[in-house]
Structures are given as structure tokens and as C-alpha cells.
Write a protein that binds this DNA or RNA. Structure first.
Lengths: 187, 187, 187, 187
DNA sequence: AATGAATGAGACTTCATTCAT
DNA sequence: AATGAATGAAGTCTCATTCAT
């Protein structure tokens, strides 16, 4: 039955993400994941060739998912101001709604073994491509892709990682960040 | 009695940093570190209580060192524009001059086990304190500490992590980033 | 799925008992046991949670076995004289027929770590309960359970531990002990 | 200075005895002993050639001490009844007054590695020699040395090992044991 | 004589992976 | 497809002992 299998694989993925986020990549074993997923360690090797392959695949999938989420927030009819808002706020929303995946990706991105597997730029490229027209039309300031990337996403990522207790405070902070970025990037 | 050999301890620290940066925290074993440092695995336990304690101590030391480096770049007579330049350029310089330590800290910061041990804010607080006077005097825009932190350091960190081949290109990028931040933060 | 191999577990138990008896509890390692049992060290941890747990479990099992052996020697129709004979001779027989288990239990009983785990009295209680009726009927002398225990089993244990070369001499000694105890305990 | 050295060696011995009694022979390391004795591990090797030699020497010394204690309780003018009382009560007293040494010896006696080093009979021989005259004179029953040994010391040892909370109860038990043995051994 | 540093060997245990059902 | 058993290799850490002061 296809549904059953899909469920099992899904449970494995979720277990992997949850445990790495909770215990750290260095304290994550196949046995732990299997137990958390409610399957046998051997079962994992039906779906993945090795622990490393599993990590890599799930990491890519999660990263792609987060970019997909972001893309889904954007509408072609948005003006530049709205676009910045959608991107930054979208990224933040993702980190709230999919906290486990967000934290997991964040951790993998900084591990040398996994960072190499996956060029983030490939994904961010499509997002940046949506911004270029605004720069060409003189609505947004022109700057390098690298810095655009850095400014649009690094600060919000930082905010997401350092979230503190009162939820309202976080929203205030996010709004402040967005308007700073609008000031910075809009003409 | 043989006296404690602090050069030996230094070699252990450097080996730890180098290997974690090279192989990732999840592929770093005490035996590997010992071999790289040219000591017996047992020797490591003379200087540290456990692998975890070693990681934590070295991490804290490195983080402190990076903040110390940054502080050393600042002069009281600097104006706001120069201060932003010094901080951002200083952070970048550190990531170049102490690439191993920078990458190591970056990785530890995202590992759940280590992130908790150490509140980065405690250190960044002194840096932010140097900026507040400029905000009070109306020379720099007023914004929350969190966003100041996020804008000043997250993007340059991103740039440092994604350095690409031609060195000149990186400098151009850095200069662009600095002037963007000056535009953003200065009145 | 491969099914649990209880013959393998049996081999582990026997190896544990044999090695502790031969080398002493302080010279018994998991690796040694595994080698003697013909399994991998890791396999031991499928059957036991830790070395300590293994020791404790095997110890309890062996102690229980020795009491079971003793109980099997007793028949309800025995008179008091026969009962004493059966108990003392039974204990001695056990120490001969199951020399390894006997020596192993003897050693564990005196190790602080294991002695606490296991209250010998719980088992000896049933044996003593068989004697009480004879005391009530005035056939055996009345004395405390502790001293009954002490007199019935400690001396024969001592004899078993200090067995010397000619087997006949040991039998003579055992017979003498039994008749001494009969003199002592019977009215 | 001679006093100092003697003290240091004494402290090592006491630490060894205390730790083995507390943690068991299998959990006793040279480092632990050194720490408990307040000396360096290296210092231990000034007084003893190896851990094993240390154990063996201290064990013998303690065993000898316990027999010496017993001998000191006996007076030539005692009659047979008093002699039995003195020996059994003496053994028990030793187990109370020198609980650590008693427990330590008891444990060593059952460890194969140490049991071989030391033939208990050599010491008990002198004690038994004191009893033979009474047997020759028809005041005590004649029996083998082995069983004499077994009856006189094994039960009291058992009582000592299984001491329970109310001290008075133990005394009652001891008195009962002594009078049982007097009944048994006297003509 | 005495010490804490240093270590190779080995302790216990867990690892990622394969096997047999 | 799925499993718990099984394992060689490797993990962290401690051992008894020696070194250098």
C-alpha cells in the first residue's frame, strides 16, 4: 500500500529533523531516529542508502521546502515595498510555523559535511530574479546579489534564532526590521 | 613533578578547532584531536573533564577572542561612520585572519548542545553600548538592540561564510555592504 | 527478523560465571566474557543493559538455582534427622556438581556492589519454614532463624570452599559435620 | 623523618581497606586510593611494587591482625567453656570494632586472585592447637580440625556479615550462638 | 621521598550497518 | 517491505604505571 510506505518515510524524516534539532547533529544516531520514528533501524536502510545520504536528502528537501514556502508568499502584482515585506515576513513566519525544519536547516547549513552538498545560491537565485526587475526599473537600489541575499535574509534569520519570550515583542522587532530594510533597499 | 605544559593545551585547542572546522562537529572524535595535537587521548582528560566540557570551554574562549578582536578595532575618537566601518570590516578581517576560529564558532553557535551554554548577547552588549551614545546624540538612527545586532553582524557573517574565489571581489562586496549599512544606520 | 538466540545467552552466562570464578570479579571484562562465549562484545548488550546489570541478573539467577537445587532434595516425608542430612549434604553436592556456580555465587555474595541487590534471606526463608514445624513439635531444638541459617549453611560452605585433594577425606569430613549438626539441632 | 613516612603508608592502607569495603574490589583504582589517602598515585609506588602487591600485602597484614586480635583474647587459664566464648565473642567483637578490616578481609578471602596468596589455615593452626589439649583431656569432643574451624568461625562470620539494625538483637543472637557451640563442642 | 603530568593499553558502551527470518 | 538480532569498528573515558621535576 502506497500510503503506508509514505507515512513511514515521512515519520523517519520528521524524527530525523526533530532529533537533530533537539540533540544536535553530533548526538544523532540511526538507532535514535528509528526509535523516535517507531521503526526498526533496518527499515531506514530500505529508504536511504546510508545515514549520510539520509541527512543530505532530508536537508535538501527541507531547504527546498523553505524556499517553496517563501515563493508561495510572493504575488507578481506586489510592488517593491510589499515584496520586501512578504519575503522577510515570510521567512520569519516559516521559522515560526515550521520551527523544527527551520532549526534543522540552520544547523545543517553550518556543518562542513553538509554545506558542501548543497549550494544555497541555486535556490535563492530564483528569488533574486524576482527582485532584479525592480532594480532595473529604478524602484529598488542596485546592489550585488550577495549583499541583497545577505541583507534580506541573514538579519531575519538572526531574529528567528534568538527569539525571546514575549511573542508581541518579536512582532515589533520584525516590523522594525522590515521597515529598516525597506528604507535601505527602496529608492 | 612534571609541570603542566600549556603549549600542549594550546595544541589541543588548535587541533579541536581545526578538525571541527574541517570534518564537522559530528565527525570529530577525541582520538582524532589527540592525534592531530600529537598527544595521547588520555592527556586530553588532564586538561578537560570531558569531550563536552572541552568543546564548551574552547568555544567560549574563541567567541570571547573574536569579540576581543572586534573591540581592539574600535577607537573612542571614531565618528559614527568610522565605527560602522570598523565593526563590519573588523568582523570580516577576523573571519579572514582567523578563519579556523571563525568557522568553528559559527558552527558551535548553531549546535543546540553548545548554543545554550553561551549567551552571545552578553558579549555583544558591550559593543552595542558603544553605539548608543551616537543614537542619543541623533547621529545614528535609533533602533532596537536586536536589530542593530542583526544588521551589523548577520550580513557580514553571511558574506564571510560564502566567500568565493577572487579575493578582490570579496573586498568589493564588503565595501558595498559597509556603505549600505552606513546609509541605513546614519542619520 | 532474526530471532533471539537463547543458547547464545546461555553461553554468555556460563562464560561470565567461569571467568569470574577463574580470574576474580576484578579481572573480568566484557570483552573477555564475549570472547569466551564466542560472541561480539556488542551482542552482550542486546541481552543485558550494562555489565553491572548482567552481573546482578546472573548472580540472582544462580543464587535462585542453588536454592532450587536444595529444595529439590527435600521430601515432605523426611524426619528431622534426614532433613538435616539432606540440606547439608545437598548444599555440599551442589558445590561439587555445580562448582562454578557455587564459587561464583560465593564471590558475588561478598562484593558490596552485588550483596545489596539481593537479600539471601528471602530465599532461605522457605527452607527455614520447613524446619519450624519440627521445632514446634519438639523434635528439633528451638533457636533463632539467624543461627539456624548460620549453623546449617555456613560451615558446609566453609568446607566446600576449602576442599582439599583426596576426595574421600572430604566425604568423611562432610559426614562428621552432618552428625555434629544432628547432635546439635535434634532434641 | 620516620614518623611521616609511616603515617603516609598507614593512610594508604586505610584508604585501600575503606574503598574496597565501600566500592568493592572491582571498583577500586589506584587513583581512587591515592585521592582518599591524600597522596599522589606515584607515591603509592614508592611503598608498593604494584597494585596487586599492595592488595596482597595489606590483605595479609589485616588477616594477621584479626588473628592476633583473637589470640589476645585468650588466656591460658581459661577453661574450655570460656575458650569457646572468648573465641566466638572475640571474632564478633573484632567484626564490630574493626568493621572495615573485617569486611575487607572477608571480601579478599573470596577473590580467587587473592585467596591463593594466603593460606588461612596457617594462622588458624595456632588457634586450633590451643584446643587440642582440651580434646585430649576429654573435656571437648574430638573432631577434625576442618570441622572445628568451620563450626567455630563460619557461623559467627555469617552473623557478622548479616548484622541488622537493633544492636541488642545482635547480642542476643551472639549469646545464643555461643551457647549452641558450647553444647555442641563440650563433653 | 614525593609529586602531578603523561601515556599505551584497555575498560565499557554505542555506532552504522548487515543478516536472517 | 519490514524487522530485531548481530557485529566489527569506533566511540568516550579510565586504568596501572612511569616520567621528569
Amino acid at each position: 500500500m502506497r500510503t503506508k510506505d509514505y507515512d513511514k518515510m515521512q515519520r523517519i524524516k520528521e524524527a530525523l529533523v526533530r532529533i537533530i534539532l533537539r540533540d544536535g547533529i553530533e548526538n544523532t544516531s540511526v538507532a535514535k531516529i528509528a526509535k523516535e520514528a517507531g521503526v526498526s533501524p533496518a527499515t531506514i536502510y530500505i529508504y536511504y542508502d546510508s545515514k549520510e545520504a539520509m541527512l543530505s536528502e532530508v536537508y535538501q528537501e527541507c531547504a527546498r521546502q523553505s524556499y517553496g514556502y517563501l515563493m508561495g508568499r510572493i504575488r507578481p502584482e506586489m510592488d517593491a515595498r510589499e515584496l520586501i515585506d512578504a519575503l522577510v515576513r515570510g521567512y520569519y513566519s516559516f521559522s515560526v510555523d515550521h520551527a523544527e525544519i527551520f532549526g534543522f536547516v540552520e544547523q545543517c547549513m553550518h556543518s562542513p559535511g553538509l554545506a558542501g552538498i548543497f549550494r544555497e545560491e541555486d535556490l535563492s537565485a530564483q528569488i533574486l530574479d524576482m527582485i532584479h526587475p525592480y532594480q532595473d526599473r529604478g524602484i529598488m537600489k542596485r546592489c550585488s546579489n550577495e549583499n541583497l541575499n545577505a541583507m534580506l535574509f541573514a538579519p531575519v534569520r538572526f531574529l528567528s534564532m534568538n527569539r525571546t519570550s514575549p511573542a508581541e515583542k518579536n512582532t515589533v522587532m520584525l516590523n522594525e526590521l522590515i521597515s529598516m530594510l525597506q528604507d535601505l533597499l527602496l529608492m
